[in-house]
Computed example of a mutant assay.
Amino acid sequence: MIAPRRFLPSISSLLALEAVARLGTATAAANELALTHSAVSRQLKVLEEQLGIALFERRGQGLALTPSGIDYANSVRDCLESLARASLKIKANPSGGSLSLATLPTFGTYWLAPKLRQFSQQHTEVTVNLGTRLAPFDFNREQFDAAIHFGRRDWQGVEYLELARERVVPICSPDLVAKPPVSAQQLIRMPLLHLESRPGAWEDWFEHHACPAEKLHGMLFDQFATMAEAAALGFGVALLPEFFAKDAVKDDRLVRAFKEPMELPHRYYLVWPKSVTPRAPLEQLVNWLSEATDPDLSVD
């Protein structure tokens, strides 16, 4: 149920509050909103009277937010941004059926995007909006219906659909390895590049190849794409998903430093909150991916 109208100020008053809070003066807010100074002041006064709380302290010719005003302005900003996103969604897909999906950059580009294209061709009534998230988040605080998760089933409060497993392979510049492939013992003496979201990846790789290593150091990256570019420039060896490495070596700037890929115990999942009944667009995507993917197959 919507709150009583006495708790619902007008959009004009809320816009005036947000602008003054962000810009610092009623004059600046008036210029941004294409209003007069007196009009903005009037909106603020109406808002304070409606709430029965002082949101500003008058200091000479200026205004300063009270502690309550600061908290309220932050909440108003979140509401206005949410309303703007909702308006953008309906404008992008007037018939409804939009779906917001948080994805991982490399997986989203090389694996998910082609499948979403097929899904969109079969479900023209659904618009899929994509955003990037590198780690689990609170669905109650984010505007996403679902997300792509890599790892184990350790995201609390979500449903899981397994999408694919992954193999990784070391790649580097041809200048770094004259005659690839090399052995694990040779690789451990080379500069190694690391991904923030996969701590210990190289240690696991060397252990798998009977060449134990601990506390390996090297340059740190937050995305595979930038790490691959650093590898191409000769900064070191990158451990990349095979589906990405295949494309990365095509232009001869990179070579596979080790012949055989290593399969990881982790998986790619589609996840969505248990606490919310999935809307029709999400149900359609879940059902379609269930039929279109085979978790027993690696990411190709």
Rank of each mutant, 00 (worst) to 15 (best):
A257F: 02
G52R: 15
V182W: 05
F258Q: 02
L55C: 08
G52Q: 08
F224M: 07
L289H: 02
F258Y: 09
S98E: 10
Q118T: 15
S10T: 15
R58H: 12
E207G: 05
Q122I: 11
L44Y: 03
L112W: 04
Y269H: 03
L192G: 04
H37C: 06
P94E: 13
Y268H: 11
L192H: 05
I70G: 05
L99E: 01
G52T: 12
S12E: 13
A213E: 03
E214L: 14
T106H: 01
E81V: 15
R133H: 11
A178V: 08
S275I: 13
T27K: 11
K250Y: 07
M262G: 06
A164K: 00
L80P: 02
V46Y: 06
F235H: 07
L297Q: 13
E214D: 14
N129R: 08
D296N: 14
L193F: 03
A210D: 13
D204V: 07
K91H: 13
F244D: 02
T109C: 09
D138M: 10
L193V: 05
A257K: 02
R58N: 09
I188G: 06
A213N: 10
N93R: 07
E48A: 10
L116V: 09
L289W: 04
A164L: 10
G60V: 06
Q143D: 15
Q118M: 13
L51P: 04
G131E: 13
A146R: 00
F7Y: 15
P174W: 03
S98L: 04
V249I: 08
A245D: 01
S100Y: 05
T25A: 02
N31R: 15
E214Y: 07
E32K: 11
L35Y: 07
E57F: 09
T277Q: 14
D294Q: 07
P181A: 08
R267L: 08
P261Y: 00
E260P: 07
H194L: 02
A34R: 12
E196Y: 11
T293K: 01
R6A: 12
Q121W: 11
S82W: 10
S38V: 14
P4M: 14
A280K: 12
L254R: 05
S298A: 14
I70D: 13
R42Q: 14
F56I: 08
I188W: 01
A238M: 07
V255L: 02
G69I: 02
V128Q: 04
G151M: 09
A54G: 12
L44P: 00
E81P: 00
K115N: 08
L101G: 07
I148E: 04
L116D: 04
D145E: 11
A238T: 01
F56W: 04
